[in-house]
Simulated assay, not measured.
Amino acid sequence: MRQAGRRSYRPGEETRSRLLEAGLVLFGRQGFDGTSVRQLAVRAGVAVPAIAYHYTDKAGLYHACALHVIRRYRERMAPLLGELGDPAEIRDREAARDALHRIVLALSDMLVPRGSEPGWTRFMMREMQIGGPAYDLMLERLWLPGLALTAALVGRARGRASPTLGDRIAALHLLSGLNWQGAARRVSEAFLGRRLDRIPRPVVVAEFAALTANIGSE
């Protein structure tokens, strides 16, 4: 019989899920070094040994969080990327600009969802800014492929078969323009006098359309 007052383990999958959710939130807010295993356990509502049982240690949970972020990002972007197809097949400059607009808007929607902020986006942004234990993994599987795609589309919008150094810099400039919704979110909200998820979406759509419309028309 279970002793009164002792916390029992939840069924395996539920415990793993709760720990993963706790990791995304706490690591996203406090980073790897700033988060203790006890905080993770309390947030998940499980006993501390559950972390070792399911993820080996705190680093294992952090790695699992990074893989979850990569998977969620790919799931969110897959329908759009499948529709756009291979950038090499895009011959029309206007089609390339439209593809850039849709990609930037999709990234914006991930950074500022209409509703509660998913913990995985905060985890992703912190890893990009601070460079935690999963930086290399996310760089290789997430950020570099995304930048390569954006640079290829910039090149197409400028009438080139392959991106130049200038096109790659333009891709960095374009995607870093999302920073006001990410790392600089608090400054943005103070300046605009409202939460970013309260900005009417048509306003955001129009501004991003104006931004991408200039690419290739220089």
Rank of each mutant, 00 (worst) to 15 (best):
L105W: 03
Q3M: 15
P113M: 08
S108R: 11
C65P: 03
I215M: 02
V37I: 14
Q129R: 11
R185H: 00
R114I: 03
D167H: 07
E140H: 12
G5M: 14
G132L: 10
E94T: 13
D92A: 09
I130S: 05
V154I: 13
V203Q: 11
D197M: 04
G5D: 14
R29V: 00
G5Y: 13
F208C: 01
I169S: 08
S8R: 15
D167W: 02
G182A: 15
R16E: 15
I70C: 01
L81V: 11
L172T: 02
A66N: 11
Y55K: 03
D86G: 13
F32G: 03
G5K: 13
M128D: 06
L174G: 07
Y9H: 12
T121E: 05
F123Q: 03
A50E: 11
I51H: 04
F191V: 14
L153D: 10
M77N: 04
P202V: 12
R91C: 02
T150H: 06
A134V: 01
Y135C: 00
H101Q: 09
G115S: 13
D92N: 15
R6I: 15
D86Q: 13
L178E: 07
F27V: 05
W180P: 00
M138Y: 04
A47K: 14
G166K: 09
E127N: 08
A41G: 08
R114A: 10
F27I: 10
R158T: 11
T56S: 13
R114W: 01
M77E: 09
F32H: 13
V48A: 07
V203T: 12
R168G: 12
W143C: 01
L178C: 01
P145R: 07
Q39C: 04
E21M: 08
R93H: 08
V48Y: 02
G132N: 06
L20K: 07
A170W: 02
E13P: 06
V69Q: 06
A4F: 11
A148F: 03
T212R: 02
M124A: 13
P113A: 03
A213F: 01
L153R: 07
A170K: 06
I70L: 06
E75H: 09
P79L: 09
R185S: 00
R126I: 03
R76Q: 12
T164C: 09
R195K: 12
L147N: 00
A96F: 04
E89H: 11
L81Q: 11
M124Y: 10
L211G: 01
T212P: 05
S217K: 15
R186G: 00
E94W: 04
E94I: 05
L111K: 04
R74V: 00
L80R: 09
A59H: 13
L81G: 05
M77H: 10
S188K: 06
L105A: 11
E127Y: 01
R16S: 12
L196F: 08
L105V: 15
Y9I: 01
Y135A: 14
E75Q: 14
E13Y: 10
L105Y: 04
M77V: 08
G28M: 08
D33E: 15
A190V: 02
A4N: 12
M138G: 02
G5A: 14
G82P: 04
L105Q: 03
G12M: 09
A88L: 10
G216K: 06
G45I: 10
G45Q: 07
D98M: 07
R74L: 00
Q129G: 00
I199S: 00
G28N: 05
R185P: 00
S36K: 09
I51C: 02
M125V: 15
A190N: 03
T150I: 11
G31A: 06
I103P: 01
